[in-house]
């Protein structure tokens, strides 16, 4: 083997690569337990996908509902407010069950969506995203609503006298001024989605590769003998992701604050 042209014949045998790895990084053996298996990676990737989809897809609805709650004056406003906050108060399992009943393939909404648009939520990652979006929705709406309420409406009035139609006022004044709240709401929604467990597992079950998110995977590990190492690995990943999201939101908030205040 030593006489082969190295560039032409890569060392493909398992034995060879292990020797090589050991030679380069002798301490690698000790940290081996930290390396994620393929299945674990899948759970992490799926979790990120589900949380991102939940955050992005619920954002337009979140901004709309927050605006309506902050500014609207209509009959049934407190009812709408209660409805939005319901997932925060209800046991997640109840929310999951309600989703299953209404958005399942045989549920009224689920059947309609499937027949007309071919969209299916049951036992798919999209269902997990829906459950996460609904669980994070109250947090998102609350944060955006507060920042819209804090906007000085005199500025919007001034924009109107300068010729901006209500739509343009919203885009050019209201949204930028509410941006810190919108970003905070997005981070909260994302964090909630990363940690969401009860509603998701009730609605779309715990199917590896399709609906088994990080939290579900950790739970599964704790249910099998010798799964502690796997649970710990995923726990560290969860901590890293949450911490990263937190730092990112801090950095964004600071950036916006600086833009708003300093020359």
């Amino acid at each position: 083997m030593a006489f082969c042209t190295p560039s032409y014949y890569p060392e493909t045998t398992a034995e060879g690569s292990r020797h090589r790895a050991a030679a380069i990084a002798p301490q690698g053996m000790a940290l081996d337990w930290l390396a994620l298996s393929e299945e674990e990676w899948t759970a992490v990737r799926l979790s990120l996908k589900v949380a991102s989809a939940a955050m992005i897809c619920s954002l337009p609805f979140g901004i709309f509902i927050a605006y309506v709650l902050a500014r609207g004056r209509f009959w049934g406003k407190s009812l709408l407010n209660g409805l939005v906050h319901l997932p925060l108060i209800l046991p997640p399992v109840v929310t999951g069950f309600l989703l299953l009943v209404s958005f399942g393939r045989r549920g009224p909404i689920g059947a309609f969506l499937y027949e007309w648009f071919g969209i299916s939520f049951s036992f798919r990652w999209t269902g997990a995203a829906l459950a996460c979006a609904i669980m994070g929705f109250p947090l998102m709406v609350r944060s955006i609503r507060l920042s819209i309420e804090a906007i000085d409406r005199k500025l919007e009035e001034a924009a109107g006298t300068l010729g901006a139609s209500p739509g343009w006022v919203f885009v050019s004044v209201t949204l930028p001024l509410a941006l810190p709240g919108i970003i905070a709401g997005m981070i909260l929604s994302f964090a909630k989605a990363m940690g969401e467990f009860g509603a998701t597992i009730t609605f779309v079950s715990n199917i590896p590769g399709e609906t088994q998110t990080l939290s579900a995977a950790i739970y599964t590990f704790t249910q099998v003998p010798g799964g502690d190492a796997g649970a710990m690995r995923l726990t560290l990943v969860a901590i890293a992701i949450s911490f990263g999201a937190l730092l990112a939101s801090e950095a964004l908030a600071q950036m916006i604050g600086r833009r708003g205040r300093q020359p």
């Binding site: 005199k154 500025l155 001034a158 924009a159 006298t161 300068l162 004044v173 941006l179 708003g260």
Partner: peptide, 12 residues
């Protein structure tokens, strides 16, 4: 055009 008592400039 309307000039208000406070300037009401857009802070962003």
């Amino acid at each position: 055009g309307y000039v208000f008592q406070e300037a009401r400039l857009f802070p962003h």
